[in-house]
Amino acid sequence: MKLRKVPAAAAVALALSLALTACGSDGGGSGTDDGKKITVGIKFDQPGIGLKTPDGTYEGFDVDVARYVAGQLGYKPSDIVWKEAKSADRETLLQRGDVDFIVASYSINDERRKKVDFAGPYLLAHQDVLVRADDDSITKPSDLNHKKLCSVTGSTSAQNIRTKLAPQAQLQEYGGYSECLTGLENKTVDALTTDDSILAGYAAQKSFEGKFKLAGFRLSNENYGIGVRKGDTELKNKINAALEKMVADGSWKKAVEANLGPAGYRNEPPPKIGVVVG
């Protein structure tokens, strides 16, 4: 009798072991093909940079950068969960752990560095102003005095102009650049300011073709970085390595040309990792 009980117990144990293993394989563990996801913050309303299209897909230079970086970290495009990262929300998203990293035309500055860390920079842009194509009243920064100047809540662009160049500009802050663009088209605002890369993307849209123009002011240097949680040096270093590879293998140039080239955007050479141009 004892000889019969031993194999029976072993059989039960083996069955339980197999059942638990099967449950584990269906439960989304840490394997590379086992439900691994990464959450990335991008802009949803910036053509050429970060845009959620009506059919629910995502496109733009930042999106291509994010996909490349995620790929170097071991994630397939289908593993990426995209989350909207509005300008005013970026630090909070990182601090709460709502996203793993942010690629959202995120300019590196000292104030933001107090709250988050940055990989990169991966693009050097310049602040400019977008005006209506038929408006010849704004030809230099000081012409923005007494004009209604639009930017988004949380952006430093409009404050830069009011502080340094046109202290009497009437600042209008909206939730997104699309709202500013509608105001510019409807003449409820006179100018929209942000980075030239973003403005070029808007101006190049077919629905706005011929309606707007860049003023051509290079008002600041904007070093785009990839935001990570404060103190996450390991992830920061991995992202920097991915960015260096993206430049070296030609993917960076291809992404710039595909997303910003049609607008006639003249990009700067890829910046050196860790070097912020003042």
Rank of each mutant, 00 (worst) to 15 (best):
P141F: 08
S151M: 11
Y106V: 09
L171P: 02
E59V: 15
G264C: 02
G24D: 01
H146R: 14
K37C: 00
G97K: 00
L149E: 09
V247W: 01
V6L: 13
A125Q: 07
I102D: 06
K148L: 08
V189M: 01
T32V: 14
F217H: 10
W252V: 07
A215W: 01
L144W: 06
P121I: 08
C23V: 12
Q95M: 03
Y68F: 15
D134A: 07
L16T: 10
K43L: 15
I239R: 06
L93C: 02
Y224S: 09
L149T: 09
G264F: 01
F118C: 07
I80D: 02
V12G: 02
T156C: 05
K86H: 07
S137L: 10
L219V: 04
G225V: 10
T32D: 11
R132Y: 01
G261F: 02
G74R: 08
L184E: 03
G210F: 12
R229V: 11
A215C: 14
S105L: 11
A133R: 09
A15G: 03
A169S: 10
A258D: 12
C180V: 09
S197L: 09
G176N: 15
E234W: 06
M1H: 00
T233H: 08
A241P: 11
D34I: 00
V275S: 12
G274R: 05
